[in-house]
Amino acid sequence: MLLESDARPRETLTFRLFNIFQRLVAIGALVSALHYWALLSGLYGGELWRFDLMPIHWRVAATALAVLFPVAAVGLWMPVSWGPVIWFCAAATEIAMHLGFPSLFGQNLVVAALHILVIAIYAALRGVLYVEKLRSRRPVRVDSL
């Protein structure tokens, strides 16, 4: 007989830390989304920082990121499998903007480094969760008793 408590996977400390980490990244994605929406609406300081005055490369990038970041924030907060994927697309876009095209978007090493750090932490936590999953599935040998 399978008890209800046996049907649910055990929540480990790593699993809880991973969920907290995803929520923190979701808050960061929401802040980034607000930044890009302020940029598009003209609330951001600067002479050319309104959508109709922006260069075309900034229009494309800011519009895409203004959509991607809030969707990623929702997906990371819930937590669903597509949340990290959408966030990774947005982060990779910002990394490419600031490291690949600094003459167009400016070289913002802090944003790129933060995204790379979050990707590394995410990969490490997923790796630990995978190892824990493998260990929990390992059959216990009783013939040695």
Rank of each mutant, 00 (worst) to 15 (best):
A64M: 14
F88T: 15
V85M: 08
V80I: 15
R50W: 01
L43Y: 12
L40N: 08
L68F: 12
W77V: 10
W37S: 07
S41Q: 06
L53W: 09
A38D: 15
W58C: 00
Y44Q: 08
A38R: 14
W77I: 09
V67A: 11
V74T: 13
F69Q: 14
W58P: 00
Y36W: 11
F88S: 15
A61W: 07
L76S: 02
V74L: 15
H57T: 08
A61G: 08
L65R: 03
I56R: 11
G83Y: 04
F88Y: 14
A73L: 02
P55W: 01
G42K: 06
W87P: 08
F69K: 13
L39Q: 05
Y44T: 03
A61Y: 05
R50G: 00
P79R: 11
M54H: 08
L53Y: 09
F88K: 14
S41P: 03
F69S: 10
R50L: 07
V71W: 05
R59V: 05
L40D: 01
F69I: 06
Y44G: 01
G83P: 14
G75E: 07
G46H: 11
F88I: 14
E47D: 04
L76F: 01
L43D: 12
F88W: 14
G75M: 09
W87S: 05
F88R: 14
V60H: 14
P70L: 04
R59L: 06
Y44M: 06
P84G: 07
W37C: 09
L76T: 01
W77A: 15
L65M: 09
V80P: 10
T63S: 15
W49M: 06
V80F: 13
V71Y: 04
P79E: 05
A64W: 09
W49A: 02
A73H: 03
W37L: 14
R59D: 05
V60K: 13
V67F: 08
L48I: 00
I56N: 10
V74K: 10
A38S: 15
L65Q: 11
L68W: 08
A73V: 05
L68D: 04
M54A: 07
L39M: 05
I56L: 13
P84A: 03
G75V: 09
L76C: 01
A66L: 05
A61I: 07
G83A: 05
L48H: 02
S41C: 04
